[in-house]
Write a protein that binds this DNA or RNA. Structure first.
Length: 487
RNA sequence: GGUCCCAUCGUCUAAUGGUUAGGACAUCAGGUUUUCAUCCUGAAAAUAGGGGUUCAAUUCCCCUUGGGACUACCA
């Protein structure tokens, strides 16, 4: 291998949202490139006009910036090999397609979609692989030029050699060979003047001086087409590194039909970019140690192309939740508050204004260890932002007690808490535990009804934590309400 | 159908010729002065099958089986 500067690219199509698989591909490209001190390029592949979606390109920019995988060359950033949006490079593709025709590596094709469909039908009927078998491949070039002049729609197809072994060495998958007879005469330039992926990717990767092509495994069968193109042009080939697919629970390529795949949705749900990146890095690669938590800088240091797996990996939301939870627990309080606030505002709106900043901060801090993702805060915090709790009185009764017992205990505790002067978690806990001892009560029979009275929930944070946040007045109010329920 | 790729606990994976096949998530059990969460301890859980090569195969080779990707004027 040469010691040229490493250059890689990610080349998403603006056809909707950014897929979790796109992000993983971007990540591996990014890690490798940063480690090698190379250039990380973004190129937008918008050669299919029919699938283009308004605003999708901006989404790509946003998601990449959010995830921290920012490109240092491409749209918005510039660079000396632009433009980086394929629809702005149309003349280039036309020029190179014609060059291929001139050199005998490609030909004009005038067959209609209908012709092709018939061709395919017949071939499948005869158990043949569908391929172009029309007359244009061997047609006279002068006649073709004539037809074009009269305005006949045409495409340019690659003249794939018959029975030639195309071999390449993939970093992940090793040596791979295809017989060119299995490869169809690819359309290079469509009748609308746009290139297909195959032409555009080769022309751009060459012109943009890419050294390594890291992309999804699904491109593996297309690679020989690209190799043939490089050879036809007489260009130096890049190094290929195909990445295993990310799979859904059905073991098929992760798709929106069966799972959440939009990176933006993960962002909205409150997954931290660092956690998502951490998890994605481990999906198909690991450093060979038993560590699992890595910040991006450590990933850059430890990343190793040779340790990328061949087999696809199933995307496991539970594991992501776990990692995200760990990242959330490690957050500084002020950062956590900043991140959670939008979710609370979204859920409670103006009702939130009633509460002090200190109160809200305490609530968030209290829920920190219970959050798998930031959006969980909305539900988890409900008991702190409700003026009256709705629950069944039977919940107040501890499993080893009865209704009368619950009432007795809450009566006692109400009077006791009324006289507490220093209202904070530590003092409340110390005093109450002592009180339980003095009264010959048990923890369970006391703390359970107290906690339910304060939270209205079967499961919740502990009673002293809640009481501390709620304050004396609201706590006593809730206990009084509980007592009413028990009458 | 054809071409290509892949194969260790349920999941992500470690171990590249010699290990009681290790870790993490999830699950289950127990503990951490009430529930949840956190934290701690423990349990259950895998080399798809068959042939080789070798003193020795998770590891190398072949076959079978299973899974997947691709097979467009989409990327």
């Amino acid at each position: 291998m040469t010691n040229k500067k490493i250059r890689t690219r990610i080349a998403p199509s603006p056809t909707g949202f950014v897929h979790i698989g796109n992000l993983r591909t971007a990540l591996y490209n990014y890690l490798f490139t940063k480690q090698q001190g190379g250039d990380f390029v973004l190129r937008i592949e918008d050669t299919d006009q029919s699938r283009k979606i308004e605003g999708a390109m901006e989404k790509i920019f946003e998601v990449l910036e959010w995830s921290g995988l920012s490109w240092n060359e491409g749209p918005l950033k510039g660079g000396e090999y632009g433009p980086y949006i394929q629809s702005q490079r149309l003349d280039l593709y036309k020029k190179y397609a014609r060059q291929l025709v001139d050199s005998g590596h490609a030909y004009y094709c005038f067959c209609t979609p209908k012709d092709l469909e018939q061709m395919r039908e017949e071939q499948t009927k005869n158990h043949q692989a569908p391929h172009y078998a029309g007359p244009c491949r061997e047609a006279d070039i002068a006649r073709a030029a004539e037809k074009i002049k009269t305005g006949s729609p045409f495409v340019i197809r690659l003249k794939v050699p018959k029975n030639e072994l195309v071999t390449f060495d993939d970093i992940v998958y090793g040596k791979i060979s295809f017989n060119s007879k299995e490869i169809d005469d690819q359309v290079l330039l469509k009748s609308d003047g746009f290139p297909t992926y195959h032409l555009a990717v080769v022309v751009d990767d060459h012109l943009m001086k890419m050294t390594h092509i890291m992309r999804g495994e699904d491109w593996l069968p297309s690679t020989p087409k690209h190799i043939l193109l490089y050879e036809a042009f007489g260009w130096e080939k890049p190094v290929y590194c195909h990445l295993p697919n990310i799979l859904g629970e059905d073991k098929k390529k992760l798709s929106k039909r069966t799972a959440a795949v939009s990176v933006e949705d993960f962002k909205k749900a409150g997954y931290l970019p660092a956690a998502l990146i951490n998890y994605l890095a481990l999906l198909g690669w690991n450093p060979g140690t038993e560590e699992e938590l890595f910040l991006i800088d450590e990933l850059i240091k430890k990343f190793d192309l040779k340790k990328i797996h061949k087999a696809g990996a199933i995307f496991d939301l539970k594991k992501l939740d776990n990692i995200n939870g760990q990242y959330i627990r490690n957050l500084q309080t002020n950062k956590l508050v900043e991140l959670c606030l939008p979710y609370l505002k979204d859920e409670y709106g103006d009702k939130l204004n009633v509460y002090s900043e200190e109160y809200i901060n305490k609530v968030i801090k209290l829920e920190q260890e219970r959050l798998k993702k930031l959006s969980d805060i909305a539900e988890n915090a409900r008991l702190f932002f409700s003026s009256d709790l709705k629950y069944d009185s039977q919940v107040l009764v501890w499993k080893k007690s009865n209704q009368a017992g619950a009432k007795k205990v809450l009566d006692l505790i109400f009077s006791f808490l009324k006289n507490i002067n220093e209202w904070n978690k530590e003092n409340l806990e110390a005093k109450t535990m002592a009180f339980i001892g003095e009264q010959n009560l048990t923890n369970g029979e006391t703390l359970w009804p107290l906690r339910v009275a304060l939270s209205g929930q079967q499961n919740s944070p502990g009673p002293f934590e809640i009481a501390d946040v709620l304050g004396q007045e609201q706590s006593l109010h809730r206990i009084a309400e509980a007592l009413k329920k028990l009458e």
